[in-house]
């Protein structure tokens, strides 16, 4: 059975849909800004589901009124890290901490090998399962 359907990473919102167009991203950003959320852009080449903290591309953008500025940064990030995963996260500060309220991918590598299941035998015949990203077998910068 194929576990990596369509060879696509499915993390965050909209990940089972076709990639969002810039116009659609703008709409989503507009929604986030209307809610008063700050938006940050992050990238990684190690998309393990437990890898929560991706690298930030610039600072999170506070006090913005219009999505055009964020889209500009997204495109900068896409240009700089063309074959990385890039995601947009909207943070809500109402509870005193910047908690993510939205998160979706805006860029993905052309070829996504996905994850493999690793079985580790421990304590006799017990088996521990973990998943492993094929891409991380290679060194940083050569993964995608």
């Amino acid at each position: 059975m194929m576990t990596n359907t369509n060879q696509r990473l499915t993390q965050g919102q909209f990940s089972f849909l076709p990639d969002l167009t810039d116009a659609q991203i703008t709409k989503q950003l507009q929604y986030a800004l209307r809610q008063g959320w700050a938006v940050g852009i992050e990238y990684t080449d190690d998309p393990h589901p437990r890898n929560t903290y991706w690298e930030m591309f610039g600072n999170p953008m506070f006090d913005l009124r219009d999505p055009a500025g964020i889209l500009l940064e997204i495109n900068n990030c896409r240009k700089t890290f063309a074959s990385h995963y890039v995601r947009v996260t909207a943070f809500d500060a109402t509870r005193g901490v910047e908690s993510p309220k939205m998160s979706y991918l805006v860029n993905r590598p052309a070829n996504e090998p996905g994850f493999g299941l690793v079985r580790q035998e421990v304590d006799g015949r017990n088996i521990r399962y973990t998943i492993h990203s094929y891409a991380t077998d290679k060194g940083e910068g050569e993964r995608y």
Partner: peptide, 14 residues
């Protein structure tokens, strides 16, 4: 550069 860009981003749309 980051400082100017931040201001520009804030002013975008207006």
């Amino acid at each position: 550069a980051p400082k100017t860009k931040e201001v520009l981003k804030k002013a975008m749309g207006g």
